Amino acid sequence: MCIIAALILTGCATPDNATARGELLRPWIELTGAKPGELLGGVAGRNGYTRLLYPTAVSARNNDIYLVDAGLRRILRYNRAQQTLARFTTLAPDTGAGIYAAPDMSVYVTDPAVGQVLHFAWDGTPLPSLGAPGNLARPVSVVVDEGGGRVLVADGLYDQIVVFSNMGMPLSIIKPRQVRAIAAIASGPDGIYVVDRLARRVAVLGWGGEFR
């Protein structure tokens, strides 16, 4: 199961205070940077410390936490066991609106500027990207159906979800009629959770696109 990691960049509540307020999530770690790792040479800062500049997206799998930093234009991988940050890959401007660490240890990254989803192996090696001309114009979010292996990509221009096979072939289109503006998607035991920014709600869809 994919881990959801919360980055707390300013302020930190104690567990007791969080419990008193009835919060479901408790602060775990405040991550502003770390010592450089060895993957692809790392990104060393002053005194051997890599500091985050403008983190915009995060995904995690096992001990690896992937951070999209728009300021550094890089994806960094934080290793919880070693407590190091390593440069996973370099990004073009406007790349990295969404990121997903898949069960096979590969990583998917949305690239809205060119209308595709980048795909990387665990060591940062580029794999064939995902695209669907005419149906995928502005990918903003990506998840993997961990039960069936399909890759689901939310398009913020057409407000639909493009379903790909695990080999990157387009399979189908999910067009939720009651969703006005898709901002992000996530997967869970009930199916697909869709953030509708205009309706200010989260819609729940089955894997076939039906409303739950």
Rank of each mutant, 00 (worst) to 15 (best):
A113P: 05
R46F: 13
I65F: 08
N79R: 06
F120I: 00
T56Y: 06
I75H: 01
L7V: 04
P176R: 08
Y108R: 06
A18G: 10
A81C: 03
N166R: 15
A57D: 03
G96F: 00
G134A: 07
R73N: 15
G191F: 03
L157V: 08
N47F: 12
G41C: 09
I65A: 03
L52H: 02
L39Q: 10
S129Y: 10
A137Y: 07
V195N: 03
S172D: 14
A18Y: 10
P112C: 04
Q83H: 12
T19N: 11
G96M: 00
T14R: 15
N79K: 04
A6S: 13
T95K: 00
G148V: 03
Y49S: 04
G98K: 06
V144Q: 07
R21Q: 12
D104S: 09
D94H: 14
G208F: 01
R61K: 10
T19Q: 15
Q83S: 09
R61E: 00
L85P: 02
L198S: 05
P103C: 08
T10P: 01
V58Q: 03
R46K: 14
A86Q: 01
R201V: 07
A186R: 01
S129F: 10
A184D: 14
A181V: 00
A20P: 06
V58F: 11
Y78N: 01
N63F: 09
Q160G: 05
H119C: 07
M1V: 10
N17Y: 12
A203S: 12
G124S: 05
P189K: 14
T14E: 13
A186D: 07
R46N: 09
M105T: 13
Q160K: 10
L31E: 03
V194T: 02
I3S: 06
G168I: 05
M169N: 11
G209C: 03
R21F: 09
P170C: 12
M169E: 14
P126R: 08
R46W: 09
G131R: 11
I3H: 07
V162W: 02
L9T: 13
F120E: 04
S187Y: 03
G188A: 06
L91I: 01
D159R: 09
Y49F: 15
S129L: 07
I173G: 06
S59V: 01
